[in-house]
Simulated scan of single mutants.
Amino acid sequence: MIGRQRGFTLIEILVAVVILAIGLLGIAGLQVMSVKSSTNANLRSVAVYLANDMADRIRANRVGVAAGSYDNETGSAQNAACLTTAGCTSAQMAANDKFEWLQELGDELPGGAGTIANNGGLFTITVTWNDRVKQAEGADADTSSEQSTVSLTFQP
């Protein structure tokens, strides 16, 4: 009479553990990519917000636009008088706006930088920053930094 087998064998348990471990590693990899993608999406939304912020600043200072004070991002300087009730000139306000905007870019985005270009009354605001991405080069994929850009073109 042949005895009946009861319970699991050690090999069956080991196979189940290996399959479970592979599944958990896959889930962990998906979680890491999800967090990375979420971070990159957050940086993109911050960049869009900052581009719109500068566009609103330009729209609010029509005299500065007419004088060409916003034609590029150079000439930016902080002016404390612009933040008081005494006020400042439109050119000083434009310089203060650009200074604050460039400071926010550096503070809010990794490697954040911005440019402003005026092409016949059509402004283009460009925001660039460093995104962390996974380079797809086979099994030895490496995490590095890549420049991302958001451009906003508008007419004040």
Rank of each mutant, 00 (worst) to 15 (best):
A66K: 09
A94R: 10
V127W: 11
S38L: 06
V46Q: 15
A86S: 10
R62E: 05
S90F: 04
K98R: 15
V48G: 11
I125M: 05
V133K: 08
D131C: 04
G111N: 11
Q155W: 06
V133P: 03
A81T: 09
G121A: 02
T149F: 02
K134T: 14
N40T: 07
A67L: 06
G29M: 08
Q155I: 10
Q5V: 00
V65C: 03
E100M: 13
K36H: 08
K134G: 10
G64P: 05
N96M: 10
N130K: 11
A113Q: 03
G26K: 07
C88D: 11
S37N: 13
Q135L: 08
N96F: 14
V48E: 13
D97F: 06
Q155N: 14
C82E: 06
T126F: 00
T74A: 04
V150L: 12
G68Y: 02
Q78D: 08
N72T: 15
R44V: 05
G23M: 11
A86G: 11
I19K: 09
I2E: 06
A28M: 11
R132D: 10
A113G: 03
Q78L: 12
A66V: 11
L14C: 05
G26V: 06
A81N: 14
R44Q: 10
I27P: 01
D107V: 10
A94C: 13
I125W: 02
A95N: 04
L24C: 06
L24F: 08
Q78S: 14
G112P: 03
V17E: 06
D53P: 03
D56A: 15
T115F: 00
L30N: 07
A67D: 02
L102F: 02
G106H: 00
V15C: 01
L25Q: 06
I22M: 15
V18W: 00
A77R: 13
W129A: 11
T124S: 11
F123V: 01
G112S: 02
L105G: 04
S76Y: 05
A60C: 05
M1N: 10
I125R: 01
L14H: 01
S148M: 13
T85A: 15
P110V: 03
A91D: 15
G112E: 01
L109C: 13
T89Y: 09
G23D: 11
G120E: 09
R6A: 01
N119M: 09
S37F: 06
L122T: 14
T85G: 12
N96C: 12
T9M: 00
Q92L: 09
R6D: 01
K36A: 12
E137T: 10
E108G: 02
I13Y: 02
G114I: 06
D71I: 00
A16D: 04
K98L: 15
N96Q: 14
F99G: 04
Y70T: 07
T74W: 00
E73K: 09
G26W: 07
V133A: 09
D131A: 13
S148Y: 10
Q92V: 07
G26N: 04
R4E: 00
R6P: 01
K98Q: 12
